[in-house]
Amino acid sequence: MRSPVDLWVYLSTSPLIWLTLTVCTWIGAVELSVRLKRNPLVNPVMTSIIVLSIVMTVFHIPYEKFFAGAQFVHFLLGPATVAIAVPLYLQWDEVKKVLAPIGVALAVGSLVAVLSVMVLGWLVGLPRDVLISFLPKSATAGVAMAISSSLGGNPSLTAVLVILTGITGALIVTPMMNRMGIRDYAARGFAVGLTSHGIGTARAYDVDPTAGLFAGMAMALNAIATSIIVPLAARLLLGS
C-alpha cells in the first residue's frame, strides 16, 4: 500500500491535476460571481487567478509545472480569437448601420490605448522591455501575447498586464460612465470592449445587452487595430 504522500508526489508531477484544478476553480469563480449578482469586485478571472496563485505558493509548485497542465486551456486562446469572426458576422447588419462612427471611435480609441501607455510609461520611467510588453494591453490576451513576443517583449508579462487592464476597465466603467452622465449604452459598451477586451465585454453583457453587443464588436475590431498600431509604435520607441 502506498501512502497519500506518494499519491501527492505522483499527482503533482502530472498535468492532469493542474488542468482539473484550473477548470474547477473557474466554475467555482463563475458561481461566486453569479451568487453576488455579478459584482465586478468578484470578477471570475481575478478570483480564479488569486485562488490558483495561493495554491501554487502554499504548495511550492513552480509555474512551469502548473502550466504543463493549464496549457491545454491556454492553447484555446488562438481558436477563440478566430471565433470572434462569428459574432462579428452575426452582428454585421447592426455594425453596417453605424460603420462610420465605429471606424472613427476605433481609430481614435485604439491609438489612445497604445499612445497613453507610451506617454505615461515614459513619464513614470518604466524600463523599455516592460513598456514593449505593455503596449498591446487593450487587445485580447492571445493577440496581445503574439504581438509582444514578435517585438521581443515578455508574453507572460503582457498576459498579466492584459488581464489587469481587463479587470481595471470592468471595475471602473460603470461608476465612471454614470458620473460622466453617459446613458448611450452602445457607446459605453464600445468603450469598455475596446479598452478591456473579453473581460470588459463580459462586464458589458452583465449591465446591458446592447452594451454587450457593441463591446464584443469593439473587442474584435481592436484585436485587428492593435496588431497594426503596436508594431508601428514600437518602431518609434525602439528607433528613438
Partner: peptide, 29 residues
C-alpha cells in the same frame, strides 16, 4: 456558431493560465 459560442462564453477561463504567471513574474512586478 456553436463552437465559437462555447469558446467565447468561457473566454475568461482561457486567460487564467497566463494570469497565474503573475506569481513567477512577481520579482519584476
Amino acid at each position: 456558431e456553436a463552437a465559437a459560442n462555447t469558446l467565447l462564453t468561457n473566454l475568461g477561463l482561457l486567460f487564467v493560465p497566463a494570469g497565474v504567471g503573475v506569481v513567477s513574474l512577481w520579482g519584476v512586478l
